[in-house]
Design a protein around this nucleic acid. Structure first.
Length: 876
RNA sequence: AGGCGCGUAGCUCAGUUGGUGAGAGCGCUACCUUGACACGGUAGAGGUCAGCGGUUCAAGUCCGCUCGCGCCUACCA
C-alpha cells in the first residue's frame, strides 16, 4: 500500500525526485511522427552572461504552464530550450575576468580568447539549465540549443548570404552609434536615451570679408569637424551671408554658409546652425544634400584625431573644455545656458555614445517590415495584450536600416571576404580567392549583431535551412511568451525573418509579460539591492509556491509587484492542499471506485454539489489558460480548493468517514473525496507540478499527472440545480453563525432555527443534510416548516425565510442598531429596484432575463425587509 | 513632441462584449488549542470605483475633457 503523506509539507523532499522521473520518462520529448496536433514553444534564450533572474522565472513558469496544459490536453508538446551567446554582454564579462589577470583580448589573440569564451559558455549554460529544472521547466533537453552551435551558425550564415544576394543586406559608410568604450557599432535599438543636464553654448564664427555668425551647440568640440554653417533660406537676418565663407579659427579650412530649410528652424537659438556631417545624423543628411565634406575628428576610443589640429589627442570631454577656452581667448564666446536634453548611452556599459562615421553592414529593413506589419494587422500573428499592436505598428512603419556588424570577436563572423583590389565576396564557405579578380582574400573581422541570430531562432533551432523533420513538424510554432521590452529587438525581427525565409510566421500567438518589480513597485536592480534570486525563493517557499505566485500576479499588461508575503500566502495554499490530501488519504481503504465508475443517480447532495463546483472550476481554468489569464486560473483553483473542497466538502465528509453519520455511503464519500481531489490535482498540475504529483502518488494514482489527460467538462457532473440548492444551505449555515456573533454568543452556544416554507428542493436537501447543518451551524433544533415561536428573530437568506430563537430571548441595543442599519440598506435597495421596475424603459428594453432577475431580487428583498421589520418591531 | 498604459477597500490587484446587490489575497478586529491543516477555523470592519461632463432604460465598464503616475518611441542644434 502507498506510503502515508508526511505530516509536514516539505517541497525539497520531493521536487528533485519528480523532476528526474519526468525527465527520464522521456515525456518532455515529443513523438515524431505523431497524430497529435503540435504545440510548440521556443524558449526566449537567456543570455549566457550569468544566472537567471526573477523575470526569467516568470516567463519560464508561464511557458511551462502552457506546455504542461497542452501536453496533458492531447497535443504533441515541444518546449525547446536554449541559450544565447549575447555578444557584447558576454564578451564584456569575460574581458572583465581577463582584466583581473592583467590580460586583454588583444594580448591573448582571437583564438585563445574564443577558447576562454567557450569555457565561460559551458559553465553558465549548465547553470541556467539546472535553474530551469529547479523551477520544474518541462523542456525537451534533447533539443537544447545554443546560438553559436554549428547548426545554428550555419543558418545565420546562410541567411546573411541570401539577404546579401537579394540586396537586403549591404555595406556602407554611414553614421552609426559608436561606443568608445566597447569599441563597436550598435544598432539604434541598443541606444538608451537619457535626459541629462547639459549646456548650450553660443559662439561666433568670423565671416570672411567682415562680420560674424553666431551658432549654438551642445557639443562645442564638434566644431573642429564643421564643414558648413546653415541658415534658413527665408531668414532675412542671414540672407546676405548665404554663399559667403567662414575662416575656421582652429583648423585650416574655409567653410561655406549655406541655406537649408530642412535642417534649420529659424526660431531656435540664433537661427544659425553649425554643420558637422561626420558627427550628427541631421548634419550628415545636410551634407548629402549640399555635397559637403564629412570630416571625422574622433578616434575610435573617443579622442580628437589628427583633424583636430592642436586639440588632437584630447579626450572628447577634455576637448570640449579646451575648445571653449580657446574660443574664449579669441573673444568668440557669445554666451551659454543650462540645457536639458536626451543623450544616447550604451545599453551595456552606459558610456555616452558618439554618432560615428564608419563602414558597416546593414539590413534594408523596410521590405521585411512591411510583411511583418501586415501579418499582425491581419491577425495571422496575434499579440496579447492587444494594445501592443499600436506600438508594434508605430515602430515598423518608421523603421530604419539595421546596423548588424559589431567590432567584437564573440559571435557569428561575417561571411564577407575582401581582396586588395577592394572587391567583396560574400559566401557561405570561405572562397580560396576573390571571385572577381582571383587575388587572395581576407575575411571581415567583425561579427554579427546577436539579435540577427536571435531573429532566426525559430528557424535555426529547428534545423533550417535543411528541410528537417523538426522544421516540418514544428514550424510555425504556436506560442511565444516573452517580455514586452524585447518586442522590437526580437519579436518583430523574428516575424520579419520567419516570413522572409519560410513564408510563414514563426509563431501564431505572442504573449507579452510585464516586469517583475519589488513589493514597493520598484524596478529590481543590483544597485538598489532589491533583486530576488529565483533559486533562493524556490528554497524558501518551494518551486510550486513560486510558480503559483508568479502566475497569480501575471495579470495581462501589468507589471508584477512581488511581495514575499504574497508568496507566503501561496505556500500556505500548498500546505492547505497537502493537509486536505492527508485527511483524504488517511481514510482511504483502497476499494474506492473512480468517479467515472460511480452511479451518479445514487449520489447524495454534497457529492453532486462538489462535482458541480468542480465542473465550474474545470471550465473556468480551461478558459483562463486558453486566454493566457494565468491570474484567473489561479484564482479559480485557489477558490475551489480552499473554499469549496476544504471548507465544505471535507467537512461534509467527516461525519460519514468518522462513522458518526450513516446517512451516506462511506465508500461513495471516500471515492468522491479522492476522485475530486485527483481531478483537482490534474487541473492544478500545470501550475504546481511537484506537489500535485507527490499527492497523487500517495492517493494511489497510477502513472504521472504530467501525462494524464487534462480534465474536461462532463455535463453529467454539472448538477446546476443541486449546486444552487446547496448554496442556499450554505447561506443558512452562514446566517446562523453570523447571528451568533452578532448577539455575542460563543461559537458553540446552541440555537434553534425555524424555517418557513422552504420549498420542496430545499426541504428535501435540509432533511437529507439535517445533522450536518445542525452540526455546522451548531443548532439545538432545526424545524423545517414548523410553527414560528413568538419572539424569534426573523430574517431571510435568498428566498428562504427563517427564524432564530435566541436563548436569552432579547436583542441587545448594539445588535438592534446593526439590524436597523441592515433594514435601512434593504429598504434603500428595494426602493431602487422598485423604481427601476416601474420605469417603462427598463422593462421594455432590458433583456427579459435581467428583468426577471430584478423581480426575483425584489421579492427576496421585500421578504427580508418584512422579516427584519417584524424582528425589530416585536420588541424582542 | 508623439504614442501607450494606469488611477477600484490600509497594501497589491481582479472586474471579460455596459445588465444593475462592487470582488480576491494580504493586512486589520473579535472569537475559537473543533482529530487534515494555527502556513488553521468562524464571523466582521473597511470603497463618493481619481475628478467633471455626456451617451443609455442601465456606466467601475462606452465617449469627451481635467488632474496625477508610469512606460515606450523621437536627429531639434
Amino acid at each position: 500500500m502507498r506510503a502515508t503523506l508526511p505530516t509536514r509539507f516539505e517541497p525539497a523532499q520531493f521536487e528533485g525526485k519528480w523532476y528526474n522521473r519526468w525527465e527520464t520518462s522521456g515525456a518532455f520529448t515529443p513523438q515524431l511522427p505523431s497524430d497529435k496536433p503540435p504545440f510548440v514553444i521556443l524558449i526566449p534564450p537567456p543570455n549566457v552572461t550569468g544566472k537567471l533572474h526573477i523575470g526569467h522565472a516568470l516567463q519560464f513558469t508561464l511557458q511551462d504552464i502552457m506546455i504542461r496544459f497542452k501536453r496533458m490536453d492531447g497535443y504533441n508538446a515541444l518546449w525547446l530550450p536554449g541559450t544565447d551567446h549575447a555578444g557584447i554582454a558576454t564578451q564584456v564579462m569575460v574581458e572583465r575576468e581577463l582584466a583581473k589577470e592583467g590580460l586583454t583580448r588583444h594580448a591573448l589573440g582571437r583564438e585563445k580568447f574564443l577558447e576562454r569564451m567557450w569555457a565561460w559558455k559551458d559553465q553558465y549554460a549548465t547553470n541556467i539549465s539546472s535553474q530551469a529544472k529547479a523551477l520544474g521547466a518541462s523542456c525537451d533537453w534533447t533539443r537544447e540549443r545554443f546560438t553559436l552551435d554549428p547548426m545554428l551558425s550555419r543558418a545565420v550564415i546562410h541567411a546573411f548570404v541570401r539577404l546579401y544576394q537579394e540586396g537586403l543586406i549591404y555595406r556602407a559608410q554611414r553614421l552609426i552609434n559608436w561606443c568608445p568604450r566597447c569599441l563597436t557599432a550598435l544598432s539604434d535599438l541598443e541606444v538608451v536615451h537619457k535626459e541629462i543636464n547639459g549646456g548650450l553654448w553660443d559662439f561666433a564664427y568670423p565671416v570672411e570679408g567682415g562680420g560674424e555668425i553666431v551658432v549654438s551647440t551642445t557639443r562645442p568640440e564638434t566644431m573642429l569637424g564643421d564643414t558648413a554653417v546653415a541658415v534658413h533660406p527665408e531668414d532675412e537676418r542671414y540672407r546676405a551671408l548665404v554663399g559667403r565663407f567662414i575662416r575656421h579659427p582652429f583648423v585650416d579650412r574655409l567653410i561655406p554658409i549655406i541655406a537649408d530649410a530642412d535642417l534649420v528652424d529659424p526660431a531656435f537659438g540664433t537661427g544659425a546652425v553649425k554643420v558637422t556631417p561626420a558627427h550628427d545624423p541631421n548634419d550628415f543628411a545636410t551634407a548629402e544634400r549640399h555635397h559637403l565634406p564629412k570630416i571625422n575628428i574622433l578616434t575610435e576610443d573617443g579622442r580628437i584625431n589628427e583633424h583636430g589640429g592642436r586639440f588632437a589627442g584630447l579626450d572628447r570631454f577634455a576637448a570640449r573644455r579646451a575648445v571653449l577656452e580657446a574660443l574664449g581667448e579669441l573673444g568668440l564666446r557669445r554666451g551659454e545656458k543650462a540645457h536639458r536634453h536626451a543623450v544616447g548611452h550604451c545599453q551595456r556599459c552606459d558610456t555616452i555614445l558618439e554618432p560615428y562615421l564608419s563602414l558597416q553592414w546593414f539590413v534594408r529593413s523596410k521590405p521585411l517590415a512591411e510583411v511583418a506589419l501586415e501579418a499582425v494587422r491581419k491577425g495571422e500573428v496575434q499579440l496579447h495584450p492587444e494594445f501592443w499592436l499600436a506600438t508594434y505598428e508605430n515602430w515598423l512603419t518608421n523603421i530604419l536600416d539595421w546596423c548588424i556588424s559589431r567590432q567584437l570577436w564573440w559571435g557569428h563572423r561575417i561571411p564577407a571576404y575582401y581582396c586588395a583590389q577592394g572587391h567583396t565576396t560574400v559566401a557561405e564557405t570561405a572562397p580560396g580567392a576573390c571571385l572577381h579578380c582571383g587575388e587572395a582574400v581576407e575575411q571581415d573581422p567583425d561579427v554579427l549583431d546577436t539579435w540577427f541570430s536571435s531573429a532566426l531562432w525559430p528557424l535555426s533551432t529547428l534545423g533550417w535551412p535543411e528541410e528537417t523533420e523538426d522544421l516540418r513538424a514544428f514550424y510555425p510554432t504556436q506560442l511565444l511568451i516573452t517580455g514586452f521590452d524585447i518586442l522590437f529587438f526580437w519579436v518583430a525581427r523574428m516575424i520579419m525573418m520567419g516570413y522572409h525565409f519560410r513564408g510563414r510566421p514563426p509563431f501564431y500567438q505572442v504573449h507579452l509579460t510585464g516586469l517583475v518589480r519589488d513589493a514597493q513597485g520598484q524596478k529590481m536592480s543590483k544597485t538598489k539591492g532589491n533583486v530576488m534570486d529565483p533559486l533562493d525563493l524556490v528554497h524558501t517557499y518551494g518551486a510550486d509556491a513560486v510558480r503559483f505566485t508568479l502566475a497569480a500576479l501575471a495579470s495581462p499588461g501589468r507589471d508584477l509587484p512581488l511581495d514575499p508575503r504574497r508568496m507566503e500566502g501561496y505556500r500556505a495554499f500548498a500546505t492547505k492542499l497537502w493537509n486536505a490530501a492527508r485527511f483524504v488519504q488517511m481514510h482511504l481503504k483502497g476499494d474506492e471506485p473512480t468517479l467515472e465508475e460511480l452511479d451518479l443517480q445514487a449520489m447524495a447532495l454534497p457529492e453532486r454539489w462538489i462535482l458541480a463546483e468542480l465542473s465550474q472550476a474545470v471550465v473556468g481554468v480551461r478558459q483562463a489558460l486558453e486566454g493566457f489569464r494565468f491570474d484567473e486560473a489561479c484564482r479559480c483553483l485557489y477558490q475551489f480548493v480552499w473554499n469549496d473542497y476544504c471548507d465544505w466538502y471535507v467537512e461534509l465528509a467527516k461525519p460519514v468517514l468518522s462513522g458518526s453519520s450513516a446517512a451516506r455511503s462511506p465508500q461513495v464519500v471516500r471515492a468522491v473525496a479522492r476522485g475530486v481531489l485527483l481531478e483537482t490535482l490534474k487541473l492544478l498540475h500545470p501550475i504546481m507540478p511537484f506537489i500535485t504529483e507527490e499527492i497523487a502518488s500517495h492517493l494511489g494514482y497510477e502513472g504521472m499527472l504530467m501525462t494524464s489527460p487534462y480534465p474536461r467538462l462532463r455535463p453529467e457532473w454539472a448538477f446546476v440545480l443541486e449546486r444552487d440548492t446547496f448554496r442556499l444551505v450554505q447561506g443558512l449555515v452562514q446566517a446562523v453563525r453570523s447571528y451568533r456573533h452578532l448577539v455575542g454568543l460563543p461559537p458553540n452556544a446552541p440555537l434553534s432555527v425555524f424555517l418557513e416554507n422552504p420549498g420542496e428542493a430545499l426541504a428535501q436537501a435540509l432533511s437529507e443534510l439535517r445533522s450536518e447543518v445542525m452540526r455546522f451551524a451548531c443548532l439545538a433544533q432545526l424545524e423545517p416548516a414548523g410553527d414560528i415561536p413568538p419572539g424569534a428573530v426573523r430574517d431571510a437568506v435568498g428566498r428562504l425565510r427563517m427564524a432564530i430563537l435566541l436563548p436569552h430571548g432579547a436583542l441587545g441595543e448594539e445588535e438592534r442598531q446593526r439590524l436597523q442599519r441592515e433594514r435601512t440598506t434593504t429598504e434603500q435597495e428595494l426602493a431602487r429596484l422598485r423604481a427601476r421596475l416601474a420605469d417603462g424603459g427598463f422593462v421594455e428594453r432590458a433583456p427579459a432575463e435581467v428583468v426577471e432577475q430584478t423581480r426575483l431580487r425584489e421579492q427576496e428583498l421585500a421578504h427580508r425587509l418584512e422579516l427584519l421589520t417584524e424582528t425589530l418591531g416585536a420588541g424582542v
